[in-house]
Design a binder for these strands. Structure first.
Length: 566
DNA sequence: GTTCAGACCGTAC
DNA sequence: GTCTGACGTATTCGG
DNA sequence: CCGAATACGTCAGACGTACGGTCTGAAC
């Protein structure tokens, strides 16, 4: 049991996992492996497996991305950038490409390689050192550590090191499978594991507690939300129409406005307020105005609140999401920006009140409690109805008020979803345009043999040219990728490696949520959440929608939304 | 020594 | 953020 | 009535837009 596992063992397990696709098998393999890991290494091991080194307890990140990684590998291997890119294209994976280069390119010093005990803990601590180094010269320092790490890696270790650093393991295992594996390894009910993961927000810590303290320890920790430890927020699934939603919820649904902002989870004890983002990052310092408001309005001793922060114009109409982003996560010139871009908090849920756990109450009960706690902070407008027409009307009201749509919440649902599935359902309105594919990127991973990411352009009749308004890789089936790739390959004008310029010929119907101002695209506009919903074989490129139509649609958005000068 | 542009990165959606 | 496909399980269908 | 077909929920992995922050290195 105490036999220590090495990074090599972990890499081998990853290799094994990557080769299997069956979910149950994945969980079994992982469970067996977890049983061999000791108390000291269980948390690092679990976090390394999913390439998610950084959690609420280690809030900062590596700040090492593809570019830096490529740079270091080039340095230690001596190959050219072109050769590396070619290799990446061949494998459709940067990890495999790196392993290939390492196995033929680098003369490893076998002695140093095996002298160094490359335990999981060691690798983890090296990565943490990278995380913790900041300030002038930190870049260089990080690269040096990386270099050393790779110089002491076998090819297979290098492969998974690369993927861990990029937080993209692609071995078929993420938190869901991991939860199953932990459940199997330590014989603990899966729902308890899921609940603990939601409350602790750290799957590595869940595994550690499961191993060291067993069911009872886990149960104790998962009992109730912990103040100042952010918990994973419930998320909503999509639906097309209101009828479908009502059916799903047995006609016991509260519809809430879906605001286009950022999710916040607010923890408060006395005067101490902390605000967390959807991904559990602490963003308190960016929102001092919200902190102040919560301090003044919420009288409860301890409380955890769930809500949305949106940009709000002086005319009381919501601001486009882009404006909010200027405020969120900001650390400089905050006071200035508070005046420039006003932000407003709306609450819609409460998870803890005066140390009492509320997540196991029904939505309805929580909402009633929230009303009393919120003081003069606005609650998200809501409507409880079982009639399609009334809900439809409310949806129109939401859209006309400049919001995204509705979110339907099952009246009797707990905050914790367990195995039940999603009890929150969102309904949005989408727009669409007919656009032309003018270029494409080769795909990655399972899409490596397809041109799978398309540059979309609107028609400009004045210039008889096409002006780009965004990219998309979403909406096509495998079969459609196959045929579109074939067609595009015949139309290649210029081959730039990863990107290919094609003759503008294929017209696609593209759905999107919003048109944004863009400095990235020549047209000056970009589509938010673009996805292809149809291949318009019946349309020729000059029948595609025009740039001026895009502009008109962009301007039209401000009939409902607010806009700030410059 | 200071300033500034650009590359790179993480993270809201 | 959206979307597709794979897997597992629950439910319905057809002989 | 039971095995086969289908429906449904969940998970993972494809990658998009935008923004600000930090570090580096060149120009002054």
């Amino acid at each position: 049991m105490t036999s220590s596992t090495t990074f090599f063992d972990l890499a081998e397990i990853c290799e094994k996992l990557e080769k299997t696709s069956k979910r149950l098998e994945l969980a079994s393999i992982l469970a067996e492996f977890l049983k061999t890991v000791n108390e000291d290494e269980i948390r690092p091991t679990v976090l390394l497996i999913i390439g998610k080194i950084f959690t609420p307890s280690d809030p900062r990140s590596l700040e090492i991305g593809v570019k830096t990684l490529i740079k270091t590998i080039l340095k230690i291997s001596g190959i050219t950038k072109e050769e590396y890119s070619k290799e990446i294209g061949k494998f459709g994976d940067i990890g495999d490409a790196t392993a290939s280069i390492m196995s033929k390119g680098i003369k490893l010093n076998q002695k140093t390689l095996f002298e160094v005990p490359r335990t999981i803990k060691y690798i983890f601590s090296q990565l943490l050192t990278i995380v913790q180094s900041t300030g002038p010269g930190s870049r260089k320092k990080k690269e040096k550590i990386l270099e050393n790490l790779f110089l002491r890696s076998t090819p297979i270790e290098a492969k998974y090191l690369v993927r861990i650093i990029l937080q993209n393991q692609r071995i078929g295992v993420y938190e869901g499978i991991l939860e199953e594996a932990i459940s199997k390894a330590f014989h603990i009910n899966l729902n308890l594991i899921k609940r603990a993961n939601m409350i602790l927000g750290d799957i590595g810590e869940v595994a550690r507690v499961a191993l060291t303290e067993g069911v009872n320890g886990l149960r104790e920790k998962a009992k109730s939300p912990i103040l100042f430890t952010p918990l994973k927020p419930t998320l909503a699934v999509n639906a097309d129409n209101i009828f479908e939603v009502l059916e799903q919820h047995n006609y016991h649904t509260a519809f809430e406005l879906k605001l286009d902002g950022a999710r916040v989870q607010i923890h408060k004890r006395g005067d101490e307020v902390r605000i967390f983002s959807r991904n559990l990052a602490n963003i308190t310092q960016s929102l001092p105005d919200i902190v102040e408001q919560v301090r003044e309005s919420v009288m409860a001793k301890t409380v955890i609140l769930d809500g949305e922060v949106i940009g709000m114009g002086p005319d009381d109409k919501p601001l486009p999401f882009q404006y909010l982003m200027k405020r969120f996560r900001r650390v400089h010139r905050i006071q200035e920006m508070i005046k420039e871009i006003p932000v407003k908090l709306y609450l819609f849920d409460i998870l803890l009140l005066d140390d009492k756990n509320l997540i196991d109450l029904s939505y309805y009960e929580r909402r009633e409690i929230l009303k009393d706690v919120a003081g003069n902070i606005s609650l998200v407008e809501s409507l409880t109805t079982d009639e399609v027409d009334k809900a439809e009307e409310f949806l129109n009201y939401s859209i006309n008020s400049g919001h995204e749509g509705l979110i339907a919440k099952k009246m009797d649902s707990k905050y914790f979803l367990g195995t039940r599935g999603k009890n929150w359902i969102k309904i949005k309105r989408i727009d669409n345009l007919d656009l032309v594919i003018v270029a494409a990127d080769w795909g990655y991973g399972r899409r490596k043999d397809w041109l799978s990411d398309y540059y979309l352009a609107a028609y400009d009749p004045d210039q008889n040219d096409f002006s780009m308004v965004g990219k998309t890789y979403k909406g096509l089936t495998d079969e459609e990728f196959e045929t579109v790739t074939k067609r595009l390959k015949e139309n290649i004008i210029e081959d730039r490696g990863k990107t290919v310029i094609v003759k503008p010929e294929i017209v696609v119907e593209v759905a999107f949520d919003e048109i944004q101002k863009s400095s990235n695209y020549p047209s000056g506009y970009a589509l938010r959440f673009a996805r292809i919903i149809n291949i318009r074989s019946d349309k020729s490129p000059n029948e595609a929608d025009s740039v001026s139509k895009v502009r008109t649609m962009f301007e039209k958005q401000f009939e409902k939304k607010s806009r700030l000068v410059n």
